[in-house]
Every structure is written in structure tokens, then in C-alpha cells.
Amino acid sequence: MLFFLGFDVLVAVANIGRLSTKDAVLFLCDMQEKFRPNIFQFNNIVSNAARLLQASRILGIPTILTEQYPKGLGPTVPELGAGDLTAHAKTSFTMIIEEVEKELQALGSPKQAILCGIEAHACIACTTYDLLEKGFEVHIVADAVSSRSQTDRLFALSRLKQSGAYLTTTEAVLLQLVEGAKHPNFKEIQKLLTHPSPDTGLLAFFSAL
């Protein structure tokens, strides 16, 4: 929180969570072959994450990719479109392993994380906690995050919001990053908005809250 003193009035300005292409990193967590049959809405989750990856390339946003024990759980699924990225292998739940920390330092220590992948109550949660403790502003893309059960997924999102993460959606992120038709890459991003986002089971839950 920042404080400004003017006209003898102390005004507090809270962080409002505005995304910026200059400060953001896209985190893609463990979207691997062996998880495919068991993760709720897996295909739609990967589809949304793939759109965010395409946008990150257009807008020059760096991307970090991890794989959980790839020897046993297989590689990242090809439809994510991340074949050109270096996947950091891990066995811990958090993505914030030594290799990732070094990559973040090399990027100039950015302060915004756009987080996608699985599982919401395990690796996404632990990564969020670590990022928040490091001073990151964490934007969890709710329709690009899931778990094996819808219950674990939805209550994880609710819990992470309590911890200070922002919950958002794929299209909200895309639109916030360009902020309007005057952005030089707007037409390229607009192509990623041509088709409505698939229903990933969130609407009914949050409508009931």
C-alpha cells in the first residue's frame, strides 16, 4: 500500500490489480499427459491456457513452464503449444523451485504472475502462497485452473482469494493486457476472443455464493 501526503491529507492508495505487459509473467503448471483422464474439464483448461500462451507471445510476456515428475507423469500435452519452451522438472508442489527463481531473476524480478494449470488445491495453491510471500501480485485464471474434483478446485479458488490472490478469467486477462482497440496488437488478441470461452463449471458455483 502506498501513501501520498498532500494538502495535509493522508491518502491510502491500495493495489487494484491492474495487469501490465511490462510486469507480468505467465506461469503454466504441470499440464501433462498422465493427468488428462482425471482432471475436471482438462481439455477446456488446456485450451484456455493455450490462448494465454499465444497472447503472451504476441505481447512479449515471458512464460515459465513446469512439469511434475515428467519421468512418471509424461510430458506437457502438445495442444498447449509449449513445445518451444524449456520445461522445469519438479517433484515439489510449488513451481517456485531454484531453476524458476533464477529465471525470474534473469527477467528482472517481475512482480505480476498470471497462473494457469493443475491442480488448484496442490501445485497452484503452493505456488500462489510462495509468490505472494515474495511480494508478487498473483492473478489466478479460474477457467484455466482445475483439479481432479470440482469440489477441490472451487474451494481452492475461494481459499486462495482469501489469501490475497486475484481471481480472473482468460478473456478478462486478454482484454486487460491490451486495454482497448488502440493497442498495436489489439487485432491479434481479438482473434483469440473470436470464440466464447468454454464453460468450465464455474458459473453455477459462483452464482450461488
Score class of each variant (00 low, 15 high):
Val11Arg: 02
Glu67His: 00
Leu202Trp: 09
Ala106Gly: 14
Lys71Gln: 07
Ile140Met: 00
Gly83Asn: 12
Gln41Asp: 14
Ala122Pro: 15
Val9Arg: 07
Lys134Tyr: 14
Ala204Phe: 07
Ser20Asp: 09
Thr86Met: 12
Asp152Leu: 05
Arg148Lys: 02
Glu119Pro: 05
Leu2His: 02
Asp199Asn: 15
Ser158Cys: 06
Cys116Trp: 03
Arg159Leu: 06
Gly201Ile: 08
Ile58Thr: 07
Lys34Trp: 08
Glu188Trp: 09
Arg159Ile: 00
Leu26Glu: 02
Arg18Gln: 04
Thr151Met: 03
Gly201Asp: 08
Leu167Met: 05
Gln162Cys: 10
Ala204Glu: 12
Lys187Arg: 07
Glu98Val: 10
Asn38Gly: 08
Val173Trp: 09
Phe205Tyr: 11
Glu188Leu: 13
Asp130Ile: 02
Gly117Trp: 00
Tyr129Met: 11
Gln162Arg: 03
His183Arg: 06
Ala144Trp: 13
Leu53Met: 13
Lys187Glu: 12
Leu154Met: 01
Gln41Lys: 12
Pro184Asn: 05
Ser147Asn: 03
Ser146Thr: 06
Ile114Val: 08
Glu101Leu: 10
Leu10Trp: 01
Leu59Trp: 05
Val25Gly: 03
Ile64Arg: 00
Val13Tyr: 11
Thr94His: 08
Pro198Thr: 12
Phe27Gly: 02
Phe4Met: 08
Lys34His: 13
Glu188Asn: 14
Ala82Asp: 11
Leu192Gly: 03
Leu154Ile: 01
Thr66Ile: 11
Ser147Pro: 04
Val13Lys: 10
Pro62Lys: 04
Ile96Met: 15
Glu98Gly: 13
Ala87Asn: 08
Ser158Leu: 07
Ile114Trp: 02
Gln150Ile: 04
Gln105Lys: 15
Ser149Lys: 07
Val178Tyr: 04
